[in-house]
């Protein structure tokens, strides 16, 4: 079985947020509850200050702290599904301990005050336990893997678009959106990225493009000191987080 990984080249990323939009549409997330987001931040001060941005999906960590803390095993890492970390919405009790334990801040409890107005939960009220009923709702639903429209009172997160990736032919080293045979299986954020800053492939396959990129372009993992060992790697300048400084 593949171990799916993502490579994001920050030298190519323009911070356009197309990935964020595509993710929201693909996964029917509420506005602001961005499973995939591009964070903008500044580093340093005038005259050497820099503007930076960082696309941030779930890192699908090899040793995910969210999985260790979950008291019901609702969140779990599935080695048979490419090592993706899922949330079983039928087991999640909404304690939010995983949100505390995730060093990357990529878990969401969308049953909260709206982050963006107007509140779409009021405009498209949910039925059947769903938080909302978005128009043109995706047919892909898998509560055991946290795929579909989020129910009330549970945590949700990026699934590497498992509902697409899982249909890919066995043994492919990479899911490249430029390959007409594979384009339908590529995660939405990768497929939509205009400057082609994202790559998706099998980290266990020595022939995969993602492995070559990581090796040749000094791929690094974000906040590697946490020991979570993400399956998402960053290339290029600026693949780091400046220390927090309160605004003066």
């Amino acid at each position: 079985m593949a171990k799916w990984g993502m490579v994001i080249d920050l030298d190519k990323c323009t911070g356009c947020q197309a990935c964020t939009t595509a993710c929201g549409m693909e996964n029917d997330t509420l506005p602001g509850e961005n499973w995939q987001d591009v964070l903008f931040y500044t580093e340093g001060e005038y005259p050497s200050g820099q503007m930076k941005w960082l696309p941030r999906p779930c890192m699908q960590c090899e040793d995910p702290s969210c999985v260790h803390v979950c008291p019901t095993r609702a969140t779990y890492k599935d080695p048979d599904a490419g090592g993706i970390v899922f949330i079983d919405w039928d087991k999640c009790i909404g304690c939010k301990y995983c949100m505390i334990a995730c060093p990357y801040g990529v878990r969401f409890f969308a049953d909260e005050a709206p982050l963006v107005e107007p509140d779409l939960k009021e405009i498209f009220p949910g039925s059947g336990g769903q938080l909302w009923d978005p128009p043109g709702q995706s047919p892909d639903q898998d509560r055991k893997r946290g795929i579909g429209v989020q129910p009330k009172g549970v945590v949700s997160k990026c699934t590497f678009c498992y509902h697409r990736v899982s249909k890919a032919p066995e043994g492919v080293p990479d899911l490249d959106e430029d390959d007409p045979e594979l384009v339908d299986y590529v995660p939405a954020c990768v497929r939509t990225c205009p400057p082609k800053a994202r790559f998706f492939g099998d980290l266990d396959n020595p022939e995969s493009n993602v492995n070559k990129l990581i090796a040749n372009k000094n791929g690094i993992r974000l906040k590697d000191h946490t020991g979570n060992r993400p399956q998402v790697c960053y290339l290029g300048a600026g693949a780091g987080i400046p220390a927090f400084q309160p605004k003066s």
Partner: peptide
């Protein structure tokens, strides 16, 4: 209101 009645969020 659901848990929107509380002021907690992702942060």
């Amino acid at each position: 209101q659901g848990h929107a009645a509380f002021n907690m969020d992702a942060n």
